[in-house]
């Protein structure tokens, strides 16, 4: 009598078979720019003990080399994350829901049904504006903070997705 809906081969649409759209190349540039800024800051921090040593301040060697190694490793990680993380990001807008996937070590794929969206916003930081990018934030009921946030969309794409969301809301 009872049908087991999870194991049965079903007709519902499969998210894994949906082609995900990559984010625009400008967003890769943005991520690299941010990584560059962080590297710059780390380089300055690593240079401080060496600079002090040049002014004949007593600095232990462990501190000088430790700071250099740590900041090199950290900025290496930031660069790998900026480049590889970008490759793992993607979004899909289906008729009834919006999905965003991200993360390369820890992968997350969040889906929000359009009928459950409470409100949405488009956020543009200074770097975003320079490159013509927008972050689309979608909010659902019952929790704080943005529940789905797609960064690095082209301004027109973000607007288009948002108007899709709004028109879906108007139908119901």
């Amino acid at each position: 009598m009872f049908e087991n809906p999870l194991i049965a081969e079903a007709e519902w649409p499969k998210l894994a078979e949906t082609p995900f759209k990559p984010l625009p190349p400008a967003y890769a540039t943005q991520r690299k720019a941010v990584a560059g800024l962080i590297t710059l800051a780390l380089a300055v921090a690593a240079a401080v003990p060496w600079g002090l040593a040049a002014f004949e301040v007593e600095v232990p060697g462990a501190l000088k080399w430790g700071a250099l190694v740590a900041s090199t490793a950290l900025s290496g990680g930031v660069w790998v994350n900026a480049v590889v993380g970008f490759l793992y990001m993607g979004y899909a807008v289906r008729r009834h829901d919006v999905t965003f996937k991200s993360g390369w070590l820890f992968r997350t794929r969040v889906t929000v049904p359009m009928s459950r969206i409470q409100h949405s916003e488009i956020f543009r930081g200074p770097l975003d504006r320079w490159l013509g990018l927008s972050t689309l934030r979608i909010y659902t009921a019952g929790s704080s903070g943005a529940n789905l946030s797609i960064p690095g969309l082209q301004d027109e794409t973000a607007q288009a997705i948002r108007s899709t969301l709004i028109s879906h809301g108007a139908q119901h």
Partner: peptide, 14 residues
């Protein structure tokens, strides 16, 4: 009544 759904795995889980 579900508002959104998340599917998560680490590279090792994958």
């Amino acid at each position: 009544q579900v508002q959104r759904a998340a599917f998560r795995q680490s590279f090792w889980h994958a």
